[in-house]
Structures are given as structure tokens and as C-alpha cells.
Design a binder for these strands. Structure first.
Ligand SMILES: [Mn+2]
Ligand SMILES: [Mn+2]
Ligand SMILES: [Mn+2]
Ligand SMILES: [Mn+2]
Lengths: 228, 228
DNA sequence: TTCTATACTTTGACTATTCAAAATCCATGA
DNA sequence: TCATGGATTTTGAATAGTCAAAGTATAGAA
């Protein structure tokens, strides 16, 4: 029903709405995410709003309607199942899977999708630890904290990486900072704006707070210490 | 490089050229194959010719250049490898694989394609027995004869089905007339324009000459008899 | 309150692809 | 030779997306 272009707008909108729940996504932000100029985004968003998939408030931004969210979740389900499929079954590199899935997500039929889901054993997370929406359009949104929030000496397990760029993913993999990996915080320098994390059986890795914030972990403070 | 639309035109052109080697494909025929009006085909073909992928002769037809053939063969390779992958790995129905591959063939990257090729063990034919072009763009074109050309009492093996429509494929599968199946010609009535073929271990099947011609076999006349 | 930088919207134009309908060509048969 | 009918080409218009550039609104700074 929705064109591939519209599917991309909806998906980015949904992802962005997760960041700031309930708020309107500004046009400039959406344009950047989709990779078009602001004027193009305005035009497309008006069309999307006309078809009832979003609410558009001029100069304020856009927000998905329930129908828009459902459609976005179906696209996201295809995207994430495909990512896992590419990595697990075809052996595609972790860092390339996202870009490949970005195209495939628009041409996979429901039949093929369910076959993939079956073959993978109805997985709940993709290779980056991102949750896979159910075919009914449900996703769990667990509150996670990041490596940036832990204290020196804390140990934890990475569950999710919040950056899909292949450069970052290559760095993460090379460092051993992948989902399921246990890590210990070796140094924590809020002043220097950096921490040092050691993945189990690997060398310690220096991370800026910004980079550390991209590694979502659980449990948050397993050694019992708590902030403040 | 080439858009999905152009890839479709090139592929149909190549397929059609196989039927009548060396001849120009008439616009009306191409239009039907691609599923557009004749006027549209004329417009597109002129653009394709301008980019050097085909030779266009007004009122005579089109023919691919060497460059166009190479591109067409790459698309065909993607198509057939995907068909086999869908059937073998994902368990998609034989009769649906073609339609699915028709979309996927335009978005698969070279990397994913080679992974699929590897996973399938560098196969040489797709689920319908159609040869898969090599990555260098070569295809063998074995001269085959069809069930329609055999005599009563001949036995042979089906190697290829020359019809991609899901209705025909479903009928073929239900009858047991699939690639690798051994069959015996039980009756042969040129006057009635029909034959009866019995797949090994199955019930005999009545086929019009037109239908029988869609089943390509080898060897042609295994029992030593020859025509005329 | 007034000004202005920045974000946003509008406008005009362009590409790719398609269709319907009108115009044209040409092999054929009279 | 000449009229036709069918195939082909041309023309005009439409749709989906996109950009560049020009116009506009508004949160804050002054
Ligand atoms: Mn996409
Ligand atoms: Mn992911
Ligand atoms: Mn296709
Ligand atoms: Mn095939």
C-alpha cells in the first residue's frame, strides 16, 4: 500500500518518536533522517498526513497516528528480521546488515517474512539488540541504562547498540563490545568525559561519554552500588 | 546503475531474444512482456538505446547490444539464484518463487548474491531447470527437445519447464511433471493434438501438444527410435 | 518592544515512468 | 496501383519524488 518512500518516512518518524515520547518531530530532523531537503520533507509529510498516517502541525512538526505507528512497526519488523537473517543465515557482516535491510524491507512479501521468522525461531531481538516488533505490531520498550551511567568497578552485560552506522559497528565489534558481552568499567573520569571499559577476555577500551552512551546494558548497577 | 524498470526491460528482451536468435524483438511483444502499453515501450526503448544497451530500429524492433546482454544476464542470474534460494532455503512454494524473485532481483547487493550462491553450492540450474548465468555472464544453452516431440513408448527425464506462471507450475507439480522426474509417453495422438505422459510412480497425465511443448526433456529419444 | 537568526514553508522546475488517444507507416490483398 | 487494418510512434497529460531558491514565521536577544 504505502510506497517505499513513505515507508521510510514512517519508520524514521517512529524511531525518532521513541527518543522524545509524545513530542512532535521537527521537519528539519525528519528531513535529515530520511536524507532529503526540508522542503521535500514538508511536502511529503503533508501527503502522509492527508492519508491519515500522521498529524502535521505547521512549524511544530509531525507525529504518527495510531495507523501510522502500526505501519511503521510492520516496516521495522521486516527491517530487523532481515538484519538478523542476513547475519545469521547468510553470514553478512554485522556492520553491513543495516544498509542491506534498508532496501530489502520494502520488497519482502508477508510469506517470505514469516518463513524467515520461522527459520530464525521467532527471535525477539536483531543483531544489534534492537527488539523485533511482533507481527501484531507490538514491541517491548525496556528501560535500559548505558555504559556511560555506570561507576568504576561495575560489571554488566551489553544488550543493545544504539548506533547503526557501519563505522561505529565495526569499531564495536573489533573492541568486543557486542550484545551479550560482559564488561567491567575500569576507569570512570567524568571530568575527562571518558571511561574505560573492559569486555570479558579482551583489552580495555577507551570511550567518550557520547560513545559509551550508545552501549545499552543490563543490569544497570550489578555490584550493588548506586549513584548519589 | 540501471533502474529497476530498465532491468526488467533488459531481462525480458534477453529472454525473448532466446526464442528467435538474432532477430529484433517487436515493440508490441516487448510491451506485453513488460506489462506496459506499446507507446510506453517505444519511449523506454529509445532511452535504453540512447544509453547504448540496445539497438532500436523504428518499426522493426529492438535488440540488445553486448553491454545490454551482459546487464540482462546479471539480472537473470540474480533472479534464478533467488528463485532457488527461496525454494531451497526458505521453503517458498515452487509456483510463488518467480513472482517473489521478480521484486528481489532489483535490490539484492552483489555481496548478498554471492553469499546465496555459496550457500546453495554454486548451483547451475534454478527450480524450474532454467540455467543460472555465471557471475561472468555466461549461460549454457543446451538444445533440448520437448515431450511433444517424443513417440509412444519413449521414456525420458524432464529437465526444464518453460512456463513461469504459477497456475501452470501448480498443475505441473500436482501431476508429478517436475525437473528430474522420469516419464514415459503412453499415448501419442497427433490427430487429436494430445499425448498422455506417465511420470514414474504417478498417474498418466493428458497434455495438449502446446502444454507438452513446455516440458523440455533429455535424452530426446532414449529408446532408440527416431522420427520420420 | 523591536530585531534578527534560524527553522520552516512555498514556489517553480526537473526526472522517470506511465497511459490514452491521435497520427503515421506499411505489408497485403483487391 | 491503391485502399486498409494492424502495429507502431507521437503527443499531451498525469503522478511520485526531489531540489534550489525565495518567502515567512517566531523564539529569543537586545
Ligand atoms: Mn528503507
Ligand atoms: Mn538493527
Ligand atoms: Mn523484476
Ligand atoms: Mn525460473
Amino acid at each position: 500500500m504505502a510506497s517505499r518512500t513513505i515507508e521510510n518516512y514512517l519508520k524514521q518518524l517512529w524511531l525518532q518518536q521513541q527518543e522524545a515520547r509524545g513530542k512532535f518531530v521537527p521537519m528539519g530532523k525528519l528531513a535529515t533522517l530520511v536524507g532529503v531537503t526540508a522542503g521535500t520533507a514538508t511536502t511529503m509529510v503533508k501527503a502522509i498526513a492527508d492519508s491519515g498516517l500522521a498529524k502535521y502541525a505547521p512549524r511544530a512538526g509531525v507525529r504518527l497516528t495510531r495507523a501510522g505507528e502500526q505501519l511503521a512497526l510492520h516496516v521495522l519488523r521486516r527491517h530487523r528480521l532481515l538484519e538478523l537473517f542476513l547475519v545469521e543465515i547468510l553470514g553478512i557482516d554485522w556492520s553491513d546488515a543495516h544498509a542491506e535491510a534498508e532496501e530489502l524491507e520494502h520488497v519482502i512479501s508477508e510469506t517470505v517474512l514469516e518463513r524467515i521468522d520461522l527459520l530464525l525461531g521467532h527471535p525477539s531481538v536483531d543483531p544489534h539488540g534492537d527488539p523485533i516488533p511482533s507481527s501484531a505490531g507490538k514491541v517491548e520498550a525496556p528501560e535500559l541504562c548505558s555504559l556511560a551511567e555506570l561507576q568504576k568497578g561495575n560489571s554488566t552485560v551489553i544488550v543493545r547498540i544504539a548506533d547503526q552506522s557501519s563505522e561505529f559497528l565495526r569499531f564495536a565489534q573489533a573492541s568486543g563490545l557486542v550484545p551479550q558481552a560482559a564488561v567491567v568499567i575500569e576507569h570512570h573520569n567524568p571530568q575527562a568525559g571518558a571511561i574505560s571499559a573492559r569486555p570479558d577476555g579482551k583489552q580495555p577500551v577507551m570511550l567518550s561519554m557520547a560513545a559509551a552512551a550508545k552501549f545499552l546494558v543490563r543490569p544497570c548497577a550489578p555490584t550493588g552500588r548506586r549513584k548519589k
